[in-house]
Simulated assay, not measured.
Amino acid sequence: MFLSGNYIEMKGYKIKIDSLLRSEFNILGEKSFIIGDSLRFKSIYTRDSSKSLGIQHPDYGYLERYSIETGNRVILKITSSTKDRIPIGMVLEAIQDSASNHNQEIKNLGLGRTLIIENLMENCKFNLSHFLIAPISHIMSDVGITYDFSTYITEIVDTKSKTPFSENTVLFVLGLLCKSGVKVYESKGKNIYDFQEIYDLSVI
């Protein structure tokens, strides 16, 4: 939480869980979003590098197919013919990481192929910073080492590189989810707003 001094004094210097609604991270540019629907992530990995989408799992090999579903609908599918959609999946790493913590199922499909299914529960809250930071832990450096946040930031400062995703990128991908029929909301203090009431989806 990020609370004003006046609020802390008013509460007699005692902070409780309901103070979360008075958090002012928005002053620092933070935003909070709620994914209203349950989501299912399906990733198929293979040991055959020739079928790789360019993403590697340390235990199961190369990503061959990837999809996101809600209910009985597929809202995103990435295969060898749609590899250009991979950045969309990367922006959603924060949601997939949370889904993995909620419920994960691993199935051996045989012939060196593995299916991982991860399920996100309804009404999960994510901060903008989650979306910006989560992909970093899935990026490999030039020497084959997975980044953590501090080493990644150090490298982009040293090389004067840009971060791969921005706030606008995150908003664009959340807009895609919204247009696909997923309930997306922005939380501002005690109030919750429908994503499409705040942002213009006609440009997506």
Rank of each mutant, 00 (worst) to 15 (best):
T82Y: 02
K16V: 12
Y147E: 10
M10E: 15
P164W: 04
D59G: 08
F165Q: 07
R65V: 11
D48T: 05
S23M: 06
S52K: 11
S141F: 06
F131T: 04
K31M: 11
P58V: 13
Q196G: 14
L174M: 06
I34S: 04
L176R: 09
L176K: 11
I44T: 12
R85K: 14
T154D: 10
K188I: 15
Y193P: 02
Q56L: 13
L174Q: 05
S4K: 09
G144P: 11
R22C: 12
P58Y: 09
P87Q: 02
L111R: 08
T169K: 13
R65S: 08
N103C: 05
F165A: 12
N123I: 04
C124D: 03
M90S: 07
S67E: 15
T46V: 06
M140K: 14
F126T: 03
K16N: 13
M90Y: 06
L177C: 01
S19A: 15
Q196Y: 13
G112P: 01
S43H: 08
M1W: 05
S81D: 11
I35E: 01
H102K: 11
S137C: 09
D48I: 04
A134R: 08
H138F: 10
I15V: 14
L115F: 01
K188T: 15
I116T: 05
R22H: 14
I95T: 07
R113L: 03
V173W: 01
F25V: 04
Y147Q: 06
N103A: 03
I86F: 02
N127F: 12
L21E: 11
I145R: 15
N108H: 11
D142C: 07
Q104M: 13
M10G: 10
I145D: 11
V143D: 15
P135A: 04
Y147W: 09
A99F: 00
E93M: 07
H130N: 15
S150K: 13
A134C: 05
E118Q: 15
Y66P: 03
D142I: 08
D148S: 09
Y45W: 10
Q96T: 06
I27L: 13
G144F: 05
S52H: 13
R73T: 13
K77R: 12
P164E: 04
F172D: 10
I15N: 03
K160D: 12
I198R: 15
D84R: 10
D48V: 02
I68T: 12
P87V: 01
L28C: 05
L3C: 04
E122S: 04
K31P: 03
H130Y: 09
V157Q: 10
V173H: 00
T146V: 13
V170C: 13
G54E: 06
T146R: 15
M1Y: 06
I34H: 02
E167H: 02
D37T: 02
Y185D: 05
V143Y: 09
D18C: 08
S98V: 11
L53C: 00
E167K: 11
E118H: 03
